[in-house]
Structure formats: C-alpha cells, structure tokens
C-alpha cells in the first residue's frame, strides 16, 4: 500500500521551476532514495511534503488522504517526520531538554495543570522524562545530556536530531543528507543503522543523500531528479544504468560540455 504519494506536484520560485509535476510513491516500510544534482529540487520536495512550503499545484496523499492543506505540526501528528540538511535543534537548550521538547506530541496536560502541579502534569512529566532517559541510553547520548548542541561534534548533533525525530514515532521519515558533515567511517555505519531504524520503528524512509555508496546500498528504490523533474525511477541498479541519469549526474555531464 502506498503510504505517501505526490501527484503532479509543482513549485516555482520566481521564474525558476524547482519542482515540475513530480510523482513519487513511498510504500509502507520502504526505503526510497532521491538522487540528483544540486538544485534538482530534492529539498524543495521535502519541504513541500513536510508542509514547510506550499506547492503551487498538485496533491500530496498520505495513507490515501490529501494533506497538502495541513500545517507542518499537523503533518507531524499524522506521522511525517523530517530532518534538515543543516542540523537545527535548539541551541539554547540542553541535549536532555531537546529530547524533552520532542516528546511534545505525546503529552496532553494543560498549562494550568503545570502551574498547580496537578497529578496529570506530574504523570506527563514523569512519562516524558522516562522516555528521554531511555533514549539517552539507546543512542549513547547520556554523557552529553547536560551539554548544549553547540558543544557536540557535528556527527553527534546529527544523531541527536535523529533521536528527536524518532521520538515523534513517524510512519515516514524524511532524511535530508544524513551523512553530510560526518566522517567516512561513520558514513559506512549509517547504512545498516538506517535499515535497523526502519525495522525497529516500522517506518518508511525517504532519503536524500549525495554519498552514492550509502544511497545505492541503503535505498530499495530510487527516484532521480533533475531540474525539478523525475527523470528515472527504479532499483539502484536500474537507475545507475539509466542514460539520462548518467548524463545529468553520474558521468560526463551535459553541463560540463555546455560550460
């Protein structure tokens, strides 16, 4: 069953076409890769799916429901989680509090309950802290619990961001270049890790990645984008042997010869 589908999604910035009638499908628990040169529209597609940008036209379907009118936080609530190309996080909050903020959607007590320390608030806070404690151990972030994101290595902030997004219990996880800025040794471990994240959280993953070996070894299916258009779709093997893909991204590029 298709979990997430985009239908004829287009987006223009000024005169530039960032997305041109993009149709992609992500099935339940599938790992799908997005391939394409810089400016192909991959991140724009993420922004449109997660609600940070409004598409000019086209539909976005999640579990067969149209969601293009939903706000970002509403899309989180139905199960769409995303990371950013440049890790954001909350710079003034500790690692612990970053993870605590990520528990937001699992909590329900109101502000008055908190002001008066009512039992509902106590229960909520205890649950949230218990979950954060568990996550700290699971992702080995405990030594940094009281540190702020700025004090961590870039790779570690990526894991923190991932832990935050996984706290949302998404059905589909949109990962925007998870390997960028981390060491090659760490990148090699990332592929198996993403597969395990998928297996243990029962979520699909839509992956933007410039590291070719990571993308080809992890994704089960790949869409190749160029100039905002899907130019190829298929298994990693099919896509890497597609002439258009070779020309636009992998091989002797059209752009080089023009330049």
């Amino acid at each position: 069953m298709a979990l997430l589908r985009t239908r004829d999604v287009s987006k223009k910035f000024g005169g530039v076409t960032a997305l041109n009638e993009v149709d992609i499908t992500v099935a339940d628990k599938e790992i799908v890769g997005l391939l394409g040169p810089n400016g192909a529209g991959k991140t724009t597609l993420f922004n449109v799916i997660s609600g940070f940008l409004k598409a000019d036209n086209g539909r976005i379907l999640f579990e067969e429901n149209e969601i293009q009118h939903l706000l970002p936080y509403e899309r989180v609530a139905i199960g769409i989680g995303r990371t950013f190309q440049h890790v954001k996080l909350f710079r003034d909050l500790t690692v612990y509090d970053n993870l605590l903020v990520a528990q937001h959607r699992h909590l329900s007590s109101g502000s008055f309950a908190a002001m008066l320390r009512l039992p509902g608030w106590r229960r909520d806070e205890k649950d949230a802290r218990d979950r954060v404690e568990a996550i700290l151990d699971q992702v080995n972030l405990r030594p940094w619990a009281e540190a702020r994101p700025g004090e961590l290595s870039y790779g570690t902030t990526r894991f923190l961001e991932l832990a935050c997004v996984l706290s949302l219990q998404p059905k589909v996880l949109l990962l925007d270049e998870p390997a960028s800025g981390i060491q090659q040794k760490e990148v090699e471990a990332l592929g198996p890790m993403l597969k395990r994240i998928r297996d243990e959280n029962n979520c699909a993953i839509l992956l933007i990645e410039h590291d070719m070996s990571l993308l080809l070894n992890t994704a089960e299916r790949i869409y190749a984008l160029d100039f905002g258009k899907v130019i190829a779709e298929g298994t990693p093997d099919e896509v890497t042997h597609n002439d258009q893909v070779l020309e636009s991204y992998l091989g002797r590029t059209r752009r080089d010869s023009v330049a």
């Binding site: 997660s50 609600g51 940070f52 706000l71 970002p72 936080y73 989180v76 609530a77 989680g81 995303r82 990371t83 950013f84 954001k88 996080l89 909350f90 710079r91 003034d92 909050l93 509090d97 605590l100 903020v101 990520a102 937001h104 959607r105 909590l107 329900s108 007590s109 109101g110 502000s111 309950a113 908190a114 002001m115 008066l116 320390r117 608030w121 909520d124 806070e125 935050c164 997004v165 706290s167 949302l168």
Partner: peptide, 25 residues
C-alpha cells in the same frame, strides 16, 4: 511550573528555533 511543562517548553522551543519547533510537532 509552567516552564517545565508541555506548553512552557514549547514556548522555549519556539523562541529558540521556530522551524525546528514545527518539525517536532
């Protein structure tokens, strides 16, 4: 008390980074 609650932390999060706050629901 408000500060250490769902809504209080949401305020701190929004102050810190609106985009990330939205991404976390």
């Amino acid at each position: 008390g408000l500060r250490t609650s769902r809504i209080g932390r949401a305020m701190l999060a929004v102050k810190d980074n609106e985009l990330e706050a939205q991404a976390l629901g």
